[in-house]
Every structure is written in structure tokens, then in C-alpha cells.
Design a binder for these strands. Structure first.
Length: 291
DNA sequence: CTATGGCCCTGGTTGC
DNA sequence: TGCAACCAGGGCCATA
């Protein structure tokens, strides 16, 4: 469930189920999920707290905890590849691939984190800083302005797709939505960031926002049973994919066959006609480089 | 700085 | 059918 729209959807689904609730005993079945915190410390820090607020930053779901109305730290959930959150009756059979769960004491429910591949994280920390520092701007926030983006791209000599996937540059995009946004902006993934024209950068900025916004509206993408939320609807954005997973199929705008390549070790989908490969930079181009 | 490859893990799909 | 190889929506770390 891993990119911004799916994480946002998960946060929205879980919010009304846990906000205001009091947390009780926890059960940790895969220690690494806690990211270095011991079971004992986790239990001590969480048991007896109340969930004040559920929100999202980048691909993190943040759960603010309080004791008697005073901040008591935060839970940070990262779904990585296969994480899911759900609330189940406490006496229900354990969920398959359950890694961490916490009793909700006000009624007979349990807040559960499941994760097939065990890459996900369910952390406790007293402050926000340690987990959230260093992240780039939220793509749907005010900080992610056109002007900032144009300048930020110009300042980086990196493969465009890799830069967009870097959470410290821009926080929330993943493999699907990067491919989708690049296609909509008619940019090839291997273009060097500093060679993206102002016009193309502006177009990419708009594409990123549009793709994420529209995906959130339809509750993200779920093309695999894996990624369906056990509660709530599966997302529907996969129906609007223009390139992701469409290699071998015709481009919806020009009919050219979509190709799959590898960029930065990630499967990458492009329309060779809509997104022509950048011309190799020539050493001897007599042009003064910008800057 | 930037790029690359290994690693963390399991399960579904593909291809012989 | 059986089985090995390959692939996956993420990200950290060491190395060059």
C-alpha cells in the first residue's frame, strides 16, 4: 500500500476507528518491526495512552498519544511494501501476518499491523523529530511550489526519476506515481534533473499534484489482492494508469507500445514516443551551461 | 555530491 | 506437475 495516496487512504480509514480510544496491552510478534525499541519499552510507553490524532507525513502514518491530555509521544507506522492497519474484534482469530497489535480498551477491539514481507515499521518515539526530520516537502502542500521545484531540479545533477523517488527531496512519491507523472509531463525518466526546462518542470509539478490528488479521490491503487484494505473499498486508481504495468500495451494517447526498462534498479514504464529519450549530453557543446 | 549493489523478507508468477 | 528464477507499490547502508 505504499505511496502517498494509499497511505493517506489508510490514515483516513483508521482515524475514526482509533481516535479518542485508549490503548492497552500490546503484542509484538516480529521484533524488528519496532525498529530497535524493545518490547518492554514499547509496552511501557504505549499502554494507557489515548490516541489524540491520526495524521500523515510523507509515507508515515503518525499517531499522537496523550496521557491526561498531555503529549505522551507518537506511534509512526510505515507500510513499506506490504503493511496494513486494521481494527478487529479482540476475540477474532489472529490476522495472518500479524506483527504488532494493541488492545483498544474502551471496547473489545484490537488495533493490528500486518505485514507479509516484514519491511514495515511500527515505531514509538517521544518526539516527531527523530523520525520525520530530513523529509522533503509534501507534494500537495504549499511548500511544494512551482518556483521551488524549478529551482530545485536545476540544482541537482541526478537522474530525474531517482531524484523524485528520493524522500529527502520530495516526500511521498513512489514507483507508480513517479512513472505516471513523468508520462503526463512527457519527460523521460533518465533525463538529468538539471536539464529539465522550466516549462517541463512546471508541467511535471502540475502532473505530480494532479496524479496524487486524483488517486486520493479514488482511495489509491489496488491491482493486487494484497493491497486491498480489509476494511473499506479497494482503490480504483489502477484503472487510470497510463504507463505503470502497461508494458506491451498501446499508449492511451498515441498508440505506441509502452516499454519497460530499469532505472535505478526500479522497473520503469515509458511511452517511447510521448517520452523521448534525452539526447546524450555532449562534452563539446559550446553552450555555456546554466550557472 | 551521485550512483550502485547488497540487504531486509515473503509469496505470487513465469518459464523451463 | 515440479521447481527454480524472477519479480514486487520501500528504504537503509556500505562502497566507489
Amino acid at each position: 500500500m505504499p505511496e502517498l495516496p494509499e497511505v493517506e487512504t489508510m490514515a483516513r480509514l483508521i482515524r475514526p476507528r482509533i481516535e479518542g480510544r485508549t490503548l492497552g496491552k500490546s503484542r509484538v510478534q516480529w521484533l524488528r518491526t519496532l525498529g530497535g525499541v524493545s518490547r518492554a519499552r514499547f509496552e511501557r510507553c504505549v499502554n494507557g495512552t489515548q490516541v489524540a490524532r491520526v495524521w500523515r507525513r510523507a509515507k508515515w502514518i503518525v499517531i499522537d498519544l496523550e496521557r491526561s491530555g498531555v503529549s505522551a509521544g507518537h506511534l509512526f507506522v510505515h507500510l513499506r511494501m506490504t503493511g496494513r492497519l486494521l481494527v478487529t474484534p479482540r476475540d477474532a482469530d489472529p490476522e495472518p501476518f500479524e506483527r504488532v497489535s494493541i488492545e483498544l480498551v474502551d471496547n473489545a477491539e484490537r488495533f493490528v499491523f500486518t505485514d507479509v514481507r516484514k519491511f514495515g515499521r511500527f515505531l514509538f518515539a517521544p518526539e516527531l523529530e527523530s523520525t520525520l526530520s530530513g523529509l522533503g516537502p509534501e507534494p500537495l502542500g504549499d511548500e511544494f511550489s512551482e518556483a521551488w521545484f524549478v529551482d530545485a531540479l536545476r540544482a541537482r545533477k541526478r537522474i530525474l526519476k531517482s531524484l523524485l523517488l528520493d524522500q529527502n527531496f520530495l516526500a511521498g512519491l513512489g514507483n507508480i506515481y513517479v512513472d505516471e507523472a513523468l508520462h503526463r509531463a512527457h519527460l523521460h525518466p533518465t533525463t538529468s534533473a538539471d536539464r529539465v526546462s522550466k516549462q517541463k518542470a512546471t508541467r511535471l509539478h502540475a502532473a505530480i499534484r494532479q496524479v496524487l490528488q486524483r488517486a486520493i479521490e479514488v482511495e489509491g491503487s489496488s491491482f493486487d489482492t494484497f493491497y486491498r484494505t480489509p476494511e473499506g473499498n479497494p482503490g480504483a486508481y489502477q484503472d487510470q494508469f497510463l504507463v505503470y504495468g502497461r508494458d506491451g500495451s498501446p499508449c492511451r494517447s498515441c498508440g505506441t507500445t509502452i516499454r519497460k526498462l530499469v532505472v535505478g534498479q526500479r522497473g520503469t514504464h515509458v511511452c517511447p514516443r510521448c517520452q523521448p529519450k534525452p539526447r546524450a549530453s555532449r562534452r563539446r557543446s559550446g553552450l555555456p551551461t546554466a550557472g
